[in-house]
Amino acid sequence: MKIAFSASQKPDAQTAMDALVAKYGNTAPQDADVLAPIGGDGFMLETLKTHMDLCKPVYGINRGTIGFLMNGLEPDNLLERINAAERAIIHPLEMRSTSTSGKQDTAMAINEVSLLREIHQTAHLSIYVNDKLRMEELICDGIMLATPAGSTAYNLSAHGPILPVGSQLLALTPISAFRPRRWRGALLPHDATVKIEAHQPEFRPVSAVADNYEVRRIRMVEIYERQDKEMTLLYDPEHSLEERIIREQFAY
């Protein structure tokens, strides 16, 4: 088995990579059977985006803080664990934004696309789903559209629903909604297209963030799932991504 190891800049990740490369060797990503990023969830997301077009399975190894998307570090039986791993298929979101200056930008998100107010002024947003106006004005700190893989991250912190990996749903979750105060968001089919427009964006500036890629002073964003982009994540059977998402719903 040819493995392409990579690591974040954290000392723990670099040390783990040195040990694993010494034991198993290292292969260029384009020639590898498996990609093995070592670090935290942020580094995992970065790796998935960088090598998305290679269509290689990814077995993440946790040397970060949370490591929800990663496996534990057990160097001695890595090949056996990869061979026995369960597969989770995920699709990214694509965000297309238009700024107040008219500049257009495109970015991918594995976890979520979020819109956030930039200053003390609340954001005033209109929400369209499949080109139909669903909410004329949401007054809030922000809003996000989360995938199942990302539903336990920022989405959960904003009291959004946890989505099973195979649910074929997206979670549209407001952040500190002021009006309508009782709106808690919506569950949407995975093939829905969501468009969000910012009201008075020069006076109430809003940024759009696709995972860790930020565009400021946006006027409008359009978000949809890239069903043609398929990523395979590998997990130890006792700690599969599906099992982690279910377990998270019973955490207290």
Score class of each variant (00 low, 15 high):
Phe5Ser: 03
Ser6Phe: 11
Ser8Lys: 06
Gln9Tyr: 03
Thr15Trp: 12
Thr15Lys: 14
Ala32His: 06
Asp33Asn: 08
Asp33Ile: 00
Val34Pro: 01
Leu35Phe: 04
Gly42Thr: 10
Phe43Pro: 01
Thr47Asn: 11
Met52Ser: 12
Val58Lys: 02
Ile61Pro: 07
Ile61Ser: 09
Gly72Lys: 09
Asp76Ile: 06
Ala84Glu: 09
Glu86Gly: 05
Glu86Ser: 13
Pro92Lys: 04
Leu93Pro: 09
Ser97Ile: 00
Ser99Ala: 04
Gln104His: 07
Ala107Tyr: 01
Ile110Glu: 06
Asn111Glu: 08
Glu112Val: 03
Glu112Phe: 06
Ile119Tyr: 00
His120Leu: 06
His120Asp: 10
Ser126Lys: 10
Asn130Trp: 12
Leu133Arg: 10
Leu133Trp: 08
Glu136Ser: 10
Leu138Tyr: 02
Ile139Val: 15
Asp141Ser: 11
Gly150His: 05
Gly150Arg: 06
Tyr154Glu: 02
Leu156Phe: 11
Ile162Cys: 09
Val165Ala: 10
Gly166Lys: 09
Leu169Pro: 05
Ser176Asn: 15
Ser176Gly: 04
Arg184Leu: 12
Asp191Phe: 04
Ala192His: 04
Thr193Glu: 14
Thr193Lys: 14
Lys195Cys: 09
Ile196Pro: 00
Gln200Asp: 12
Pro201Thr: 03
Ala208Gln: 00
Asn212Arg: 15
Tyr213Gly: 00
Arg217Ile: 00
Ile218Phe: 05
Arg219Gln: 03
Tyr224Met: 08
Arg226Ser: 12
Leu233Ile: 13
Asp236His: 08
Pro237Asp: 06
Glu243Thr: 07
Glu243Gly: 05
Gln249Thr: 15
Phe250Gln: 15
Ala251Asn: 13
Tyr252Trp: 12
